[in-house]
């Protein structure tokens, strides 16, 4: 009799693998759009780097539109991008304050997203400090124009002075919440997941560091802040992660289409 009085009924939307399009798209002020596309992998199956690369989407039709024109992006091979392939535009360059619509058509389906490029700001200053004989730390001072802005720091390193990195990775703890006053931050090396045991936040003496400091819109902050927690704490049982970053892509895709208002810096010790 007691059992029949139960009123709660268990119900779950998703407990197993569902194939999704993964989008990582960016449009920076003064630069053309770049979009990486891939398909997610079944978590329960073992897979290799090659198989992951095979999940990169090569034959999508990707267009970016502003209020006046639409451009179809071209797919290039570039090993500096995590997916090794990137869809890039030429004519439409990002402008501060303007909105850009992304449209993707692939395998008979269509996805859309819209983003806006915020006004960029400059880092107030950048300092370097030798920590060990061959390692140095980079720190910077932020002076926000107002307390309602979110920021994100990306960087990449190069040991060849002539080679400028084409893709900058999010730095460790590089997503900065609004509400910040002037304060100093540390610019940490991005996590290298494939070589995690040798990871250090510091930079090597031979490395030249290319940094972007970007103002990002709210939807991008919502995405990248949860992305950051997912990436840092995915193995942490004490502060566990079970949250999906919210996407601004329609139709069930994951990822982010983001406008960045960026300033750029090169640091060499």
């Amino acid at each position: 009799m007691l059992l029949t009085t139960s009123c709660l009924k268990e119900e779950y939307d998703q407990t197993s693998f569902k194939e999704r399009l993964i989008v990582e798209g960016a449009i920076y002020n003064g630069r053309s759009a770049e979009v990486m596309l891939s398909i997610n992998m079944d978590y329960t199956k073992e897979f290799t780097e090659d198989e992951m690369i095979n999940k990169v989407v090569r034959y999508a039709v990707v267009t970016v539109s502003d209020e006046a024109q639409t451009e179809t992006l071209t797919c290039y091979r570039d090993n500096q991008y995590p997916t090794k392939l990137v869809y890039k535009g030429v004519y439409i360059k990002g402008e501060v304050g303007k909105s850009y619509k992304l449209n993707i058509q692939y395998s008979g389906r269509e996805w859309d997203a819209v983003t806006t490029i915020p006004e960029p700001e400059e880092l107030y200053d950048i300092q370097t400090e030798w920590v060990r004989d061959t390692l140095y730390r980079i720190s910077a001072t932020i002076k926000p124009k107002d307390k309602q802005r979110h920021y994100m720091i990306r960087c990449a390193t190069s040991r060849d002075n002539d080679q400028r990195p084409s893709y900058l990775y999010p730095t460790l703890f590089g997503v900065i919440d609004k509400g910040t006053d002037e304060h100093q931050i540390t610019i940490n090396r991005p996590l290298d997941y494939a070589h995690i045991l040798n990871y250090t936040t510091l930079f090597h003496s031979q490395e030249r560091v290319y940094i972007s400091f970007s103002a990002i819109p709210q939807e991008a902050y919502d995405y990248w802040s949860i992305w950051e927690n997912c990436s840092v704490n995915s193995l942490n049982p004490v502060f566990p992660v079970d949250e999906n970053p919210p996407t601004n892509i329609s139709n069930g895709a994951q990822g982010i289409w983001c406008g960045y208002g960026s300033t750029y810096y090169i640091v060499a010790p």
Binding site: T15, K18, I22, N40, Y43, T83, Y169, W224, W227, D242
Partner: peptide, 16 residues
């Protein structure tokens, strides 16, 4: 339920 790469990191997609 799935895993994918964004921003150079492996991100897990969680189910219900």
């Amino acid at each position: 339920t799935s895993i994918y790469s964004v921003g150079g990191a492996f991100i897990k997609e969680f189910g219900s």
